[in-house]
Design a protein around this nucleic acid. Structure first.
Lengths: 230, 230
DNA sequence: CGGCATCCATTTTGATACTG
DNA sequence: CAGTATCAAAATGGATGCCG
């Protein structure tokens, strides 16, 4: 299957040659919450044909964005995970995601799919890793009907769909509130005082959470042209 | 033509519902260098079908990303230009562009199209607007066979394909060097001392140029979660 | 000629069935 | 579970036609 390319010597066109096809960036989003199996991906991406999913996974692997890994027995399974280039691509998606929140915000449609991890993987990107030294907490996020888990550990932030047995605290809200906060139209502190976001669990963990998350997401985020250490 | 949507309540999916189709982001890129006519766009985007171009323009207009404007006689012509939302979308594309430069860099192919403005519109985004107070210069960029113009004026940066009669200075280099600088693998100062980038014209204008451009583009740009004033 | 609309061959995608 | 095979439907590319 020869890929359709733009044939332009331009960084944007070169990017879009490999991530501009349907489903590709959503596949990257799925893998932001850790390695997943073929059937997990097929389940999360409702509407993708099985053969197209297989073709996209092969393309992304050829392009060095994901890699296959065999889990050892007894869990014997093939999983896909992001490479370093894939993780950097995921980071590059954040401004597009925030643009979407600001300009495409609306109420969810009745038949629309929703997963807590879709929002949580991008919330996780906004946590200041330098503020995490010595901290280690696991949070359960209950967003509407769906839940996902966020773990901060030393200078690392990870998201997993869960469910996990052990966690230190729970944050609860609804999908629309998440969108309004992402759009920069609602501050986290304001959402907390009005009860639109509820917190429950270990007080130290919760205080940490409110400290590492931005209180208000900017409506005009800027790309910092200083190198990020590490 | 009913649009194909992902049907997921997720900011990324909501964005991709409207900018994920073929040609859409390249159209936005074209309009980053100022308003253009239908035929300008058709000429720049080699391979797009005329009917598809018309359809995309209508979609983008419906989605509030571009708007049509009638130029007054005698230049009587219809041009398309970015709205505020469109300009913000263009800004959100920068990390994806830099990701492409870092991970998809290669030599240009013989049959590949190239335009100076494709690079210049993103270079323009990296100029620190706060450092421009009281400055007013126009630069000609000669990139390979192609040229485009950059104008800084007060706190404003604009790019036009030109040609312009009057400009204060010229910067000259080749497409591959632009890509290496964009990828963060080559500092501007280094490219200047090795003669890979040449400068010519008014010394004040040139000194200003080297001051407002970043010397080295980070390999790990970060999204600043402070609001950008203005 | 600029600014599209129409038509049709080719690709890509969606949905389901099937296999080791 | 991890895909492949198949086929219909939709999107795209390219040519051509129309109308001021």
């Amino acid at each position: 299957m020869a890929r359709r390319v733009y044939n332009q010597f331009c960084s944007l066109a070169l990017s879009l040659d490999i991530v501009g096809e349907r489903w590709t960036l959503l596949l990257v989003r799925e893998l932001m919450a850790g390695p997943k199996r073929y059937t997990d991906l097929a389940g999360a991406l409702d509407g993708i044909g099985s053969s197209l999913l297989a073709a996209r996974l092969r393309q992304l692997e050829d392009d060095g964005i994901i890699r296959q890994r065999q889990l050892p027995p007894p869990t014997a399974a093939t999983v896909y995970e992001l490479t370093t280039a894939g993780t950097e691509l995921a980071e590059a998606m954040l401004p597009l995601v925030l643009w979407g929140a600001r300009h495409r915000a609306r109420a969810p449609r009745p038949d629309e799919a929703y997963r807590a991890e879709w929002a949580l993987v991008f919330i996780a990107q906004m946590i200041d890793r330098d503020a995490l030294t010595g901290l280690e907490y696991t949070y359960r996020f209950q967003l509407g009907e769906s839940e996902a888990y966020l773990r901060i550990s030393h200078n690392d932030v990870t998201v997993t769909p869960g469910p996990l047995d052990r966690f230190d605290a729970t944050a609860g809200t609804d999908p629309v509130t998440v969108l309004e906060i992402s759009a920069g139209r609602l501050a986290l502190s304001e959402a907390l005082t009005t009860g639109r976001v509820t917190l429950d669990g270990d007080p130290d963990a919760l205080l940490t959470l409110t400290r590492v998350l931005p209180d208000r997401i900017p409506e005009h985020p800027r790309i910092a042209l200083d190198n990020v250490p590490g």
